[in-house]
Amino acid sequence: MTAVAAPRPATVDAVARGRTRRAARRRLVVAVLAVLVVAAFAASLMIGQTFYPPGDVLRVVLGQDVPGASFTVGRLRLPRAVLAVVAGLSFGLAGVTFQTMLRNPLASPDVIGITSGASAAAAFAIVFLGWSGTAVSVTAIVAALGVAVLMYTLAFTDGVAGTRLILIGIGIAAMSKSITSYVLSKAGAWDFAEALRWLTGSLNGTTWGATVPALLALVVLGPLLLVLTRDLSGLQLGDDTASALGIRVERTRITAIVGAVGLLAFATAACGPIAFVSFLAGPIAARIVGPNGSLLVPAALVGALLVLVADLVGQFALGTRFPVGVVTGVLGAPYLIYLIVRTNRAGGSL
C-alpha cells in the first residue's frame, strides 16, 4: 500500500507485519464464526421433540424422502432455521451499519425506534387490513423508512447531533410500541403468544411464506451494504475528511440508510423485532475482531449466531418454550446497561 521506493525503514515493516497479522486474525474470526453459524444451523435442524441424526437431516435438505423426518425437518424446522439465519444476518448487518454511520454504539435501529416502527406497521397491516405476505413487508419497509426520515428531520437543526437523534428515537420507539399495543388490543382476543411476536419477536410457526421475502431482501440488499464497506469506514472519520477522501457522503449515507432499513423491515415483517440483536451484534463483533477492518461481515455472522442460539435456548434449554425475542431481551438489556456504565465511567460524552 505504502509505495516506498527506497529501502524501507524498520517501522514500515513493523506496520506491515501488524496489518497482515490483524488481517489474518480477522479472517480467522470470520471463518470460526461461519463454522459456528453452520453448526448452530445444523443443530437446530436436528434437535427437537425427536432427534434426527445428521444423515437424515442432510438427505431431507438434499430433497430425498425420509419417512417422518421429511415433514418435521423439511416443513417445520428448516423454514424456522433459515429464517433465524436470515433475520440474524439482516439485523446484525443493519445494526452495525447504523452504529458505524452514526458513530455511536447506542444508535442501533432497535434503540432508536426504526425496528419498532416497522413492527407497528406490520401488526397494523395484518390486524386491521387483513394483509399477508409481501404486502406486509412493503408496509413495514415504508413505515421504517418513514420513521427514519421523520427522526432525521426532527433531529435536524443546523446539523444532526447524535445525542438528539438518539433521544428523539427513544420517543419514537415509545410511540411505536404503544401503537403496536393499540393494534393488538383492537385485535379482540389478546393472543399472548401472537402478541409477543410483534412486541419482542418470535420464530414460532414460521413458514416458507414468511421466510422467502426476507431471504430475497437479504440477497439483494446485503451485497449493496457490503459494497459500501469502504465508504462507510470513511464516513467514520467525519463528513469533511470523508469527502476529502473522495467519498460521496450524502449518496453513501442515503444508500446505507435505505439498505439497512430495507433489511430490517423485511426481517421484522417475518419474525417481529427480535429484541437487541441489531444492538448487540456490532459491539460483540468489535470485541472479537479487534480494531481493524470493517465490522459488517463479522457483525452479520454474530447476529445470525445470536438468533440461532437464543432460539435453541428459548425452545429447549428451559422448562417453557420462550420466544426468541424474550431470550435476546433478557441477554441484551444487561449488556446495554453495561455499555452505558462503561461509557459513562470512561468519561465519554456518549
Binding site: 434503540v111 438518539i166 427513544i170 419482542t200 429484541a275 431481551g329 433478557v330 438489556a333 444487561p334
Partner: peptide
C-alpha cells in the same frame, strides 16, 4: 433517559 429506557426494556423482558 438511556439508562431508564434500557432498564425498562430489561424489566419488560
Amino acid at each position: 433517559a438511556l439508562a431508564g429506557t434500557a432498564t425498562s426494556a430489561a424489566l419488560v423482558s
